[in-house]
């Protein structure tokens, strides 16, 4: 009897500790994702400012500006995490498109404002990359907690509250060369 109570207490302590640790890990993934979201507006603002700064040089590159305008309109309607991830990739593509288009204009490359804005964008991109890495690290840590033995046995007790999550495949997307001409020919 005494032996059974002791075993029960040990298991209870373990399960409570596991539950709290999984809640902590889930919150960390949410916190990391929130920092990715927070960067959307900053990157959008930087991109819009860049467009404003160079509008006089490349006014006829209407596709670049319209893609940016469309993204700016969409930013408020993002709800699911899938939509947010897709938006993040579109924003990255728009920035790449802008940068590649701007490279054809020597006057732009020499423009002090554009250089400053470009540095801001570089910094924001680096911070975003760091946020993505932090999110992936948090997801891996959560997945390890869920899938490793003996946690995998006890996780079932929590009624499917904790499930392994997908890491962001941003690196894979970055390996794909952006379809610049496709983006330029896109109709809004």
């Amino acid at each position: 009897m005494f032996f059974g109570i002791i075993i029960g207490v040990v298991i209870l302590i373990y399960v409570v500790s596991l539950y709290n640790s999984l809640i902590g890990s889930t919150n960390k993934t949410q916190e990391a994702f929130a920092s990715i979201e927070a960067s959307f507006q900053q990157r959008m603002d930087a991109l819009v400012s860049q467009c404003e700064a160079v509008r006089s040089y490349m006014d006829h590159e209407s596709e670049v500006f319209s893609s940016v305008t469309k993204l700016r309109q969409n930013i408020g309607s993002l709800k699911t995490s899938e939509e947010k991830v897709a938006f993040d990739q579109e924003l990255t593509q728009a920035q790449t498109l802008f940068r590649l288009t701007a490279e054809n204009y020597p006057d732009i490359k020499a423009n002090e404002n554009v250089l400053v804005l470009q540095k801001t964008v570089n910094e924001l991109e680096d911070r975003l990359y760091a946020a993505r890495r932090a999110y992936n690290a948090a997801v891996i840590s959560l997945n390890n907690s869920i899938q490793m033995f003996p946690n995998n046995i006890f996780v079932g007790f929590f009624g499917g509250k904790f499930k392994p999550m997908e890491t962001l495949k941003a690196d894979e997307a970055a390996k794909v060369r952006p379809n610049i001409s496709g983006m330029l020919n896109r109709k809004d």
Binding site: K28, A32, Y129, A130, A131, R133, A134, A137, A138
Partner: peptide, 22 residues
């Protein structure tokens, strides 16, 4: 961090996980 070799050689602590990676 993502590098197994780096984690073997160094111990990294920070009060901000994202800035540490930045």
């Amino acid at each position: 961090l993502e590098s197994v070799e780096f984690n073997k050689q160094f111990n990294v602590t920070s009060d901000d996980q994202i800035e540490a990676r930045y």
